[in-house]
């Protein structure tokens, strides 16, 4: 394999991870864009969706239907979980506390979901059956291509929804000024609930593509995924829907290239094991240099 082919292959490898990050980051950014809450439990919604798939995919196969149809069951489970978390945890805290308390509640919910899953399903990782059997497209695995396509479709659909529907307008209004929206007759609580339902439903789609790619479900799978997707969302500009897509792909490619070339470039001083550190240092650099992210407008607000 010559150097150029290897380089292209490593970019493709980056897209493989990045496409999943992008899909997760879309849900992250959607919730942040409306409620200004960094939902740290979002990664764990992915885990909830993945367990839903683990249980429903064999049912679909037994019924002779395509396994991916179980994504609808997963969307239902995730949306319900999202709405429950919002109603039981975030909403009461939001009424009483400030942004910081909401953030800490989100971290608490993440830990709660991880431990709940362990109690319910055990600590052993679970294997999900093969979901898609897709051919390679120009050397890129079919799963990756489908993930990117789905990401773009979701991104466009989400942008149109927020821009043109009544609920979407309400969402933007709530994000702008909660009290004023209330005065204008917008049902703020209902709008937030819908936002959570959609955001969590998106997590189920990300779960589908994740398990199609990586086949395994564990109760801890969401935490690192969530963090990476969070970095992706911040990099693209948190709250900005196309930014999440861009950020996810960039993070994936940076991760892949740093794993592939950092050791020879630094003479073995920094190895591929540092790739996570590199990814997270991107977060620091972005926050220092352009806090609003690649596609964000600098408004002086801190993330």
């Amino acid at each position: 394999m010559d150097g150029l082919t290897l380089f292209i292959q490593q970019i493709i490898n980056g897209l493989r991870v990045g496409s999943v990050y992008a899909l997760i980051a879309l849900g992250y950014t959607m919730v942040y864009g409306i409620i200004r809450l960094i939902n740290f439990a979002h990664g764990d919604f992915i885990m909830v969706g993945a367990y839903a798939l683990f249980f429903t995919v064999p049912v679909m196969i037994a019924a002779g239907m395509p396994p991916w149809l179980s994504v609808f069951a997963a969307i239902l489970v995730c949306a319900t979980t999202g709405v429950l978390v919002e109603k039981l945890a975030y909403s009461p805290v939001r009424a009483k506390g400030n942004k910081m308390t909401a953030l800490i509640t989100a971290i608490a919910m993440a830990l709660f979901l991880e431990n709940l899953a362990q109690t319910l399903f055990g600590a052993n990782p679970k294997q999900v059956k093969t979901i898609f059997d897709l051919p390679q497209v120009f050397g890129v695995s079919g799963n990756t291509v489908l993930t990117i396509i789905l990401g773009v479709v979701v991104m466009i659909a989400l942008s149109l929804y927020v821009k043109y529907t009544k609920t979407g307008q309400a969402m933007r209004a709530v994000s702008e000024d909660k009290d004023a929206s209330l005065l204008m007759g917008i049902n703020v609580n209902r709008t937030i609930t819908i936002t959570f339902a959609i955001g969590s439903g998106l997590a189920a789609i990300a779960s589908l593509m994740y398990v199609a790619q990586y086949n395994q479900v564990t109760n801890m799978m969401g935490s690192m995924l969530g963090l990476k997707a969070f970095v992706a969302a911040v990099l693209g500009g948190i709250g900005i829907i196309p930014g999440a897509m861009l950020g996810g792909l960039v993070i994936g490619i940076v991760e892949s290239l740093s794993k592939a070339y950092i050791a020879p470039l630094t003479g073995g001083l920094i190895t591929s094991a540092f790739s996570d550190a590199i990814v997270f240092s991107i977060l620091i650099v972005v926050l220092l240099v352009k806090p609003a992210g690649i596609l964000g407008k600098n408004t002086g607000e801190k993330v």
Partner: peptide, 9 residues
């Protein structure tokens, strides 16, 4: 979860 890059090398 992803080792593709290292494995490609």
């Amino acid at each position: 979860t992803d080792y593709t890059t290292q494995l490609t090398n």
